[in-house]
Amino acid sequence: MLVRIVKMSFEPSNIEEFLTNFDQVKDKIRHFEGCNFLELYRDKQQPHIFFTYSYWDSEMHLNQYRHSDLFKGVWSKTKPLFNAKPEAWSVDKVASLT
């Protein structure tokens, strides 16, 4: 399993547009083949910064999403809303406690 973390910083005036867009596509992303989990987080101290946190069956599945029409549509609406370059990490889960 691959865990993907993406940090996004938005122009404050664009936050509502981002949230509306995310709400419209979140189920499609979550149910894309190979995606098993999706969450969106918002920084408490800097409310213009958001993170997505997702689980993928493999890097191949993530790459299939990243090259899909769904991703291209999501990204084309999201990218113009940023006020800084997004950052992304693909990580392995080392420990999980519940």
Rank of each mutant, 00 (worst) to 15 (best):
Y41M: 10
H61F: 01
K28I: 06
E11C: 01
T52I: 02
R42H: 04
P86S: 07
M60D: 15
W89Y: 11
T52E: 04
F82P: 06
V74T: 06
Q64E: 14
K77N: 15
F51E: 02
F51I: 08
M60K: 14
H31G: 06
D27N: 15
S54R: 00
L81A: 00
A84L: 11
D43C: 01
K44A: 11
K85T: 15
S9M: 10
A95R: 11
W75F: 15
M1G: 08
Y55P: 04
D27Q: 11
S90W: 03
Q45R: 13
M1D: 00
S76I: 00
S68D: 05
W75Q: 14
K85Y: 13
R30L: 06
Y65G: 07
N36C: 06
S90A: 04
D27H: 09
F71W: 12
K93F: 01
I49V: 13
W75C: 03
F32Q: 00
T78F: 15
E16N: 14
A95N: 12
A84P: 12
L81D: 00
T78E: 05
V91H: 03
H61W: 03
S90E: 10
R4D: 03
W89P: 10
A88D: 13
K44M: 13
E16M: 13
H31Y: 15
D27W: 12
S9H: 13
N63F: 10
T98P: 01
R66A: 14
S90R: 02
F18T: 01
P86F: 14
V3N: 09
D92I: 01
W56R: 05
H48Q: 15
V74S: 02
H67R: 06
R66H: 11
E11Q: 05
D92P: 00
Y41H: 12
S96N: 09
I15L: 07
E59I: 08
N36H: 11
Q46P: 00
K7M: 06
W56C: 05
Q45F: 14
F10H: 01
H61G: 02
Y65T: 03
G73V: 02
R42C: 05
R66K: 15
F71G: 05
I29H: 05
Y53N: 08
I5R: 02
Y53F: 13
E39P: 01
P86V: 11
D23M: 10
K93W: 00
R42P: 02
K44T: 12
S76F: 09
C35N: 08
V74G: 06
Q24Y: 03
S58I: 03
S76G: 11
N21A: 12
M1Q: 02
K93E: 09
D43Q: 03
W75N: 14
